[in-house]
Design a protein around this nucleic acid. Sequence first.
DNA 1: GTTGGCACTCGGTAGAATCGAGTGCCAATA
DNA 2: TATTGGCACTCGATTCTACCGAGTGCCAAC
Lengths: 350, 350
Amino acid sequence: MAHRGTQQRPESAGDLDARKAAILKAVVTEHVDTAQPVGSSSVAAAAHLEVSSATVRSEMVALEREGFLAQPHTSAGRVPTDKGYRYFVDHLAEATMGLAEQRQVAEFFAHVRGEVEEVLAKTSTLLSELTNYTSVVVSTGHAQASIISAQLVSLDAGHQLLVTVFSDGAVSKHSVFTVYPASAIEVAEASRQLHALLLGTSLETRVQVPSRSDHVSSLVRDAVATLHAVAPTVDGEQVYIGGSSRVAEAFDGVETVRQVLGILEQELLVVSLVEEVLKSTSGVSIGSEHGYESLTSCSLIVAPVSVEGRRVGAVGLLGPTRMKYREAMAAARLVSEQLTQHFTGDDDRV
Amino acid sequence: MAHRGTQQRPESAGDLDARKAAILKAVVTEHVDTAQPVGSSSVAAAAHLEVSSATVRSEMVALEREGFLAQPHTSAGRVPTDKGYRYFVDHLAEATMGLAEQRQVAEFFAHVRGEVEEVLAKTSTLLSELTNYTSVVVSTGHAQASIISAQLVSLDAGHQLLVTVFSDGAVSKHSVFTVYPASAIEVAEASRQLHALLLGTSLETRVQVPSRSDHVSSLVRDAVATLHAVAPTVDGEQVYIGGSSRVAEAFDGVETVRQVLGILEQELLVVSLVEEVLKSTSGVSIGSEHGYESLTSCSLIVAPVSVEGRRVGAVGLLGPTRMKYREAMAAARLVSEQLTQHFTGDDDRV
DNA sequence: GTTGGCACTCGGTAGAATCGAGTGCCAATA
DNA sequence: TATTGGCACTCGATTCTACCGAGTGCCAAC
């Protein structure tokens, strides 16, 4: 989005000379801290360029003209615009985080146990506690994973359960109803056929179902049809939200809080949002950059989680545009790396 | 909690004569509507007892003395206390709901499909949309359910997955790690043994595990141990929250919103809260009645969901003490009944 | 290009005045 | 005795005004 100019034309559209950058950085940093517009004098004091407030002032009008800063009203200090924040995260914010937090993450991943779902849920809580922002952990569906076991279990005569295990460790279940009562023998035979039929296939594979009309065959047909119809949508992406109560801390207007929570309730929307941001190079979306009206006061930081080079999910942090990008970016990255390592490592070792 | 007096002593501690009741009802109704303290004159107008505002006033001081009403400050109208709301729900609020809503519920249950988990999640959304309050749907664990299938699936040589199917249709999975690489034959044999061993047992049943030290036996032992150790806690109660964004609508202080959301994040706490309220006869907990400091401005309405006489869960609605009890109670009850019927009916029919 | 000086702006705060919904009390009434 | 109209009073909410001061923009001097 932001056009990167060349260094030789420091006043060109996209780039800033060292002093302007320092001033912008100081404004962002202080405004993030105080939530107040910041004035020229405090910038002059904070950024340790040895210039007077008057100089800072004239630089600030330039920054405002170029769209990096804004003035809530005359005779107030400056506030960063989305563009200002963007420049900050792209050029001025090297991600760093406290030692205590780093240790907390290490500690967490050293001891975390359990199934993928549990780990992701806990990770989501961790991220949120680490940063005081609302966290989003997304795991992508297992559409590509191959089926390593399929089994039909009878709940009662007319109600069978197809239990499918995928190579990535996911397990899904789907009800299959029959109009006639199925005998135990029929179910067992159907189960055997299903296993043979589905083994090694993925949800995207077309499988050859038996065309005969006997009980077992139609049961097999129904089971496969159900699996292929329902599984991709229902067992798809999973979303874990951590620390949604922190939405209330991060934003002031109750209405904003409502809207943001409303967004977080819609899993599909969250997933597509995360995917969208993931595509951008910085992994950060600021204010109006993501298209959603009700998220204009939010920023979203995401980092991918992979296993063996394949993306299997992402972690994200949702905060106000006025958020602590350095810490949050560092946290998201560290956790995503650890998560990647956790999943890659775990399969081979104990 | 509220002591029910006898009708013959209308001025006794717990009971109110008809006029006081009518006045209390009017105060509650109007205050729920307007969120403002209500004055004697509007009560005199609304409750169609043919008395003047002065009479209402003198009754109101009595109601205040008895703890049903409170005055925010001297020259303001009255507001119901928790005790006032309690009397209202116990004696004055017959649950009713609009036809449109009833139709919406019928519509929903006529078309809803899918696994239990999906149905519960959707129900949670339904309840929330129906009432504009935050909904809570809890399903109790399947500790009593018996195991109808257990199967060990190999993810890789050192990592097996125990997939267990319960008689209530729940499926759980648990990783079992081996220090040695397990062969396909060993896994198959262990799977067979596990199935035989666990079939018909519940998570509370002690099972006789093989004591030999060969690979298969120790794999079986580990799997059973993992299942019994982990399943009761992890696969226990499940909580579905619907419409958490409505918390922001229902309460005004941002701090209150934060606290309530904070509570909702803690599933265990929500479960025990719901269980607690379920025990009370009314199924409603108002303000300070539930012990949690941060929920004093909330009320919680719950209704049980059963299958074949056994409680398998509950639905609930969380709103401000100033909530529309009649509609909310009606919605909770109707949905809980429909859910009960849905689960009872579904197993037999298509 | 940088700086100190200075007039100016304008949101925020504090205090005073006012308004009015609603109360408590009381004497008159049925 | 219960009910009622009348009335003085209370006190939060609203409005208005004055004022403060942080911060700006501009300019002349360096």
